[in-house]
Nucleic acid binder design. Structure first.
Lengths: 248, 248
DNA sequence: GCAAAAGTGTTAACTGTACACCCATGA
DNA sequence: TCATGGGTGTACAGTTAACACTTTTGC
């Protein structure tokens, strides 16, 4: 990779990241707020993203965006796909905003979307990160977004739901030690419906992806919950194979 | 969309299509052969693809490539994702070939891959199509390909396998009328292992995505097989919901 | 009548689902 | 002692998986 002062931006291709987080209560997504456009209150938010450099891969660009924004590395990150809306300047605020930050605001841009899963508890925002005024929004509150970002967000959310059915990716949203209730809550938040507590626990234990620790919650005003951690070994295996599904 | 003589190619973005076909015996993929490079026998093949125009979406570009090559429209087509290999000119033959067809052969290109499923029996190649010398290759024989096309092909094949587990997409590879044995053979070809005949049939029938027709094979030297067609209604439903899997 | 592929049923093991009560803790 | 959420078992229904023989046709 060349040094920064030699790097050339590719003005036709960007990456955008849909970053999901879970605060043990709600599923959230990290959005940034534009500096210039003050109108249209619900269209001010957009997904964090950037044009790519010509000497970096798409994955590298996504990792860079994530690091610049959250300071985090080694995050679960997966490409969602490419989006090519032809009408991205149909909203006047988008046009104004682009003119304020891009040299060629009218150039057609293809964006490659990524979705990322981060553990909100290991996320300690430094003020510098938030100079761009990023914030976690509950996914229910995400209505309209800039450009085609709402479409991308919806696609990411759907992918997260679908993927959870066959791969144990949800653990990326939790701290290293967690309770089964937290895991349960997370799954309910993602799939958007209630799941039977006993059956859920049974299933997780039978899949052998959680390992019971000799440690319990302290200071809670109810029976303390046992902590668990992943069974990394089995987790890797399941990541490859997926869970049993259609049955071939 | 503008007329052809006004259209501007985007020299930084291409689409490549992994087109699968099934001849009722084997799973095949449509590859094109380069005109110039005669050396390195097993690296001559590449995936059909093209640079995109700036006034078309990625999906439109993929549809265009497919139509130009096969003459077919209304084909099952799905985006696989974006690929951004930085070392695409590492093979000398690739470099020579690009220099012969591109104005800016050294420009960095991001490619968006698609995978397509076509019914080989409805595919009647006209000589014009084959001016580009496309040919169906059994997937086992696909070893090395130009650029990063082998990686893309592998990814498409894996996606096809994975998707078959949860969605009845295989039907796109068969003619309107087919026998359960053909369907069975197709599934075995895609997942790459034997499937129990009785269990397979039972499952397909129970899922209610096939409808028995009052028509049998004729002229076969064994008990003639019954023809079936899809149950389009149920098919659409299953496409949306996927099959039952992790169980939430 | 023979070769070739079509078509068909049963059983046992496992998996999913529905459902209600007692437990440990802090206040 | 009460409020809170943690933790557990059982029975029924449905699904998967393994397995072998008879049928229909052309030659």
């Amino acid at each position: 990779m060349k040094h920064n002062n030699q790097r050339k931006l590719n003005t036709g291709i960007s990456v955008d990241c849909v970053i999901f987080g879970f605060d043990l209560e709600e599923l959230k997504v990290l959005l940034i707020q534009r500096k210039t456009a003050q109108k249209a209150p619900d269209s001010r938010f957009s997904l964090p993203g950037d044009l790519i450099y010509n000497d970096e891969t798409l994955d590298e660009a996504a990792i860079r965006v994530l690091k610049e924004l959250t300071g985090l590395e080694n995050i679960y990150l997966e490409q969602l796909g490419a989006f090519s809306a032809l009408d991205r300047l149909s909203k006047i605020e988008d046009k104004i905003w682009l003119e304020s930050i891009r040299e060629q605001p009218n150039e057609r841009v293809i964006t490659i979307a990524y979705f990322a899963l981060v553990n909100l508890n290991s996320f300690h925002p430094s003020p510098a990160n938030f100079a761009t005024s990023a914030s976690w929004r509950p996914i229910q509150n995400v209505t309209s977004l800039a450009f085609d970002h709402h479409e991308i967000f919806e696609s990411a959310h759907q992918q997260l739901k679908a993927k959870l059915q066959t791969q144990p990716i949800g653990f990326n949203l939790l701290p290293d030690k967690f309770t089964l209730s937290q895991l349960h809550k997370l799954y309910e938040a993602i799939v958007g419906k209630e799941l039977d507590k006993r059956n859920f626990r049974r299933k997780m234990i039978k899949l052998d992806i959680v390992k019971k620790l000799e440690e319990k919650q302290v200071g809670v005003p109810h029976k303390p919950s046992n902590f668990y951690e992943f069974n990394q070994k089995n987790y890797q295996k399941l990541l490859k194979e997926g869970f049993d599904n259609f049955g071939f």
